[in-house]
């Protein structure tokens, strides 16, 4: 899967969780609690299922979940 494809899929998941957020410009999704713990656990679970990867509790940190790009990086890293 290409990076752009992964990014698009993540954006779709995020839109399903809350369509009112501008994910392209937002880069503090976790730090500013744009995504709360319910959103984060849903997101982690959906990403795990979509990309067939295991997201552990220690992965749910700002560095991985603050923006679409950081989430994409996390998925790419697990794929490699």
């Amino acid at each position: 899967m290409e990076r752009t494809e992964i990014r698009e899929s993540i954006l779709d998941i995020l839109q399903d969780i809350n369509e009112d957020v501008d994910y392209e410009s937002e880069n503090k999704l976790m730090a500013d609690e744009v995504l709360d713990s319910f959103d984060l656990i849903t997101l982690a679970s959906e990403i795990g299922e979509e990309f067939d990867m295991e997201i552990s509790p220690q992965d749910i940190v700002k560095e991985n979940f603050n923006s679409v790009d950081s989430i994409t990086d996390m998925v790419m890293k697990s794929k490699n």
């Binding site: 713990s37 656990i41 982690a44 679970s45 795990g48 299922e49 295991e54 997201i55 552990s56 509790p57």
Partner: peptide, 18 residues
């Protein structure tokens, strides 16, 4: 949140139920 909610939500058992 960090030691029960996230571990529970990302656990294998919950993934199977899901």
């Amino acid at each position: 949140r960090d030691y029960v909610f996230y571990p529970c939500g990302t656990s294998r058992a919950v993934r199977k139920i899901k």
